[in-house]
Simulated scan of single mutants.
Amino acid sequence: MKNKITEANVSMVISKTFSGLNMNALKYLLPLWMTPLSGVTIRCTFAAVAFWIIGMFTKPETSTRKEKISLFLLGALGIYGFMFFYLIGLSKTTPVSSSIFTSLEPIWVFILAVIFFKEKITKMKVIGILIGLGGALLCILTQKSDDLAADAFTGNMLCLMSSFAYAAYLIISNRILSKVGVITMLRYTFTGAAFSALIVSTVTGFDARVLELPLHWTPFLILMFILIFPTVISYLLIPIGLKYLSTTLVALYGYLILIVATIVSLTLGQDRFSWTQLVAILLICSSVYFVEIAENKEKK
């Protein structure tokens, strides 16, 4: 079991590192080389096809019809909802700001656990939540729109919604994983996400210059990186973490996204250093620390 936990932790480190680079790669492509909704359609459809192909070469997994329908709906609403808000938000704000809201996932996980699973509320946890929400509010209200963030307020609000949607996905998928295999979960959730994406693209239209001929190799290779590493490989690794680690700990690994996205963004000029962003980051990191300390005290 100890080896499994180590494997789960390593899986989360790799997965979240790819997710951090994903923010910078997507920021390069959006909206010049593809629209946000077209980007969601490409990612969800590619992942669904990839996981069905991978499933053909893995050990068969058993699942009931009810479980498959639940997974399909989880993907159609949870994964698609997360990517929908995330890509539109990222196209309007900066990678650092979007990663700040990703770091709120442990807070949302706890709040949802309180509402639906009667998690115990303590003074320490309430303080942590208030500090975290204060950090998010600081980022939302102080960041101004500029050449790097076309509509910072709207983008930040959408990224906030995406972090909430992903937290809900983490909680539900964590419970379903106790009954079904990893590949089964990925096949049906991404099939559901692709279904929603294709319906939306049918209504709104599909616009992805990155796929037009003749190919522009730099954006095309960046897209391939996004599809293979942050999408397929990253999502293959997440269920390993969910199976052997607590949901809160998995969400805590979201801080790696923040670290990677911040370093790469400042290096590539996709964001500028901001004291308010730094304060927001420190507040959110402190908030999760409070929640975790309170949880650990209760366990002891």
Rank of each mutant, 00 (worst) to 15 (best):
N3L: 13
I5C: 00
A8Y: 07
S11V: 14
S15M: 11
F18C: 08
S19R: 00
N22F: 13
M23H: 00
K27I: 04
Y28L: 12
L29G: 07
W33L: 02
W33Q: 09
V40P: 05
T45G: 04
F46H: 00
A47T: 14
A50P: 01
W52C: 07
I54S: 02
G55W: 01
G55Q: 00
G55Y: 04
E61R: 06
R65A: 15
R65K: 15
I69L: 14
L71P: 03
L73S: 04
G78C: 11
M83Y: 13
I88P: 01
G89A: 11
S97D: 14
S97V: 14
S99M: 08
F101C: 09
S103L: 15
I107S: 10
I107Y: 05
V109A: 02
F110Y: 15
I111R: 01
L112M: 11
A113K: 05
A113W: 00
A113G: 08
F116S: 04
K118M: 00
E119M: 01
I121W: 01
I121C: 02
M124K: 11
V126C: 00
I129A: 08
D147G: 06
A149E: 02
A150Y: 14
L158P: 02
L158R: 07
C159L: 00
L160D: 05
Y169H: 15
L170R: 02
R175I: 06
Y188S: 00
T189W: 01
G192M: 13
F195E: 14
S196Q: 11
A197S: 15
L198R: 09
I199P: 09
V200P: 12
S201E: 08
S201P: 05
V203Q: 12
V203W: 10
F206G: 03
D207C: 10
R209E: 08
P214W: 13
F220P: 04
M224D: 04
F225I: 04
I226P: 01
F229I: 11
T231Y: 01
Y235C: 06
L245K: 10
L245E: 03
L245M: 15
T247L: 13
A251H: 05
L252Q: 11
G254H: 10
Y255H: 07
L258T: 13
V260I: 14
A261F: 09
T262N: 04
I263P: 05
S265F: 07
G269Y: 10
D271S: 07
D271I: 06
F273T: 08
S274C: 01
S274L: 11
W275D: 05
T276H: 11
L278S: 06
S287L: 13
V291S: 04
A294C: 11
A294D: 10
N296I: 14
K297I: 13
K299T: 13
K300T: 05
K300F: 04
